[in-house]
């Protein structure tokens, strides 16, 4: 004992220490196994809980629950149509806005930005990711919504509203809150994630290829378009899917700015609702054992499935790129 404490490297003592290793090692490995399995069990239990909790709603309304657009708590007729549409519509708006911005920022950071600017901009983008979503919600509600209602929506409704086909996107009173505002806020929220992955992808483009392109006289834009982007295309699509996945589940910020109406409308300015915002709104007052609570759990399950599909696709795309 004393010898161990004094740190003597006596070979006999070293071998004597081994038995502890023999005991602690399996324990340690066991704990690691436990941690790993724990995640699987937890995930399984959550899926099972959502599925089981929502099953009565599915049995009551049948598979048409998925696309039925009625959500009437009074008559207890529920359908997920409006929310599924709102979830996908707002998330797609977010990606459509975030995508070009992310491309711009990422390429600027990797190719154009002088060293002094690269770090501050990089940090600023990371900080965007660190802002809690409730802050985005409040900012959206108090700043963006009034701006949209006063300056953005009225001219758009006036100019684009009467046009055929796309005019349908620009209908209704300028409320400020609505699909477009929700998409805009979410675009800012997913921007850091998409940008970070884009930067990674662009940095992984072998310099030799780019230098060769410059060497044969290509301009910066041509290198970007014909070398960098094609090289990382699959991974970039994966990054976009990842952003889409995040936008699908966004709750607090969306609840603040989407206008929370359970009506279907193709207009960008119409208030709508997403699965997550509906759950946040209705859950506290849903009576135990009620069809409403079961429908909300079913909504949760649907969101889970949608997110799972999107995430699986994004992983598939990112991985195929990394292997290639």
């Amino acid at each position: 004992m004393d010898a161990t404490l004094s740190g003597n490297a006596d070979p006999a003592l070293v071998s004597a220490r081994k038995p502890t290793g023999r005991v602690s090692d399996p324990v340690f490995v066991g704990i690691l196994w436990g941690s790993g399995i724990f995640v699987l069990i937890l995930l399984g239990l959550i899926i099972a809980m959502l599925f089981e909790g929502g099953l009565p709603a599915l049995q009551e309304f049948g598979i048409s629950f998925l696309w039925n657009t009625t959500w009437n708590p009074v008559t207890e007729v529920f359908g997920a149509g409006v929310m599924v549409f709102g979830t996908i519509f707002s998330a797609v708006i977010a990606v459509v806005i975030a995508l070009p911005l992310s491309f711009g920022i990422a390429f600027f950071l990797t190719e154009i930005a002088p060293g002094v600017l690269r770090r501050p901009i990089g940090v600023a983008i990371q900080l965007l990711a660190a802002i809690p979503s409730i802050i985005y919600g409040m900012w959206g509600f108090f700043v963006i919504v009034p701006l949209m209602a006063a300056y953005v929506q009225p001219p758009l409704i006036e100019w684009l509203g009467p046009l055929p086909v796309i005019g349908a996107l620009f209908q209704g009173p300028p409320l400020g809150a609505g699909m477009l505002t929700a998409g805009l806020i979410m675009a800012i929220m997913i921007l850091p994630f998409i940008t970070a992955m884009f930067v990674e992808v662009l940095e992984s483009v072998p310099p030799m290829i780019k230098e060769s392109a410059y060497g044969v006289g290509a301009t910066t834009y041509e290198v970007y378009r014909n070398v960098s982007v094609p090289y990382g295309r699959t991974a970039m699509v994966g990054a976009v899917m990842l952003g889409l996945g995040r936008a699908l589940g966004e709750t607090m910020a969306v609840t603040f700015v989407i206008g929370n109406a359970t009506r279907m409308s193709a207009s960008l300015f119409a208030p709508g609702s997403t699965i997550a915002s509906t759950i946040a709104n209705e859950f506290p007052e849903a009576a135990p054992g009620s069809l409403k609570l079961e429908s909300l759990l079913e909504l949760g399950f649907i969101l889970f499935v949608i997110s799972f599909i999107v995430l699986a696709l994004s992983r598939l795309l990112v991985r195929s790129r990394l292997k290639g």
């Binding site: 708590p73 009074v74 409320l175 929370n260 359970t262 209705e282 007052e285």
Partner: peptide, 23 residues
Amino acid sequence: SVQWPAGAGGKGNEGVAGTVKNT
């Protein structure tokens, strides 16, 4: 909660008051 035929929703008293103030 009911299926509102018209209008927009705000979360909580503060959400309603804020939306009314904004519009």
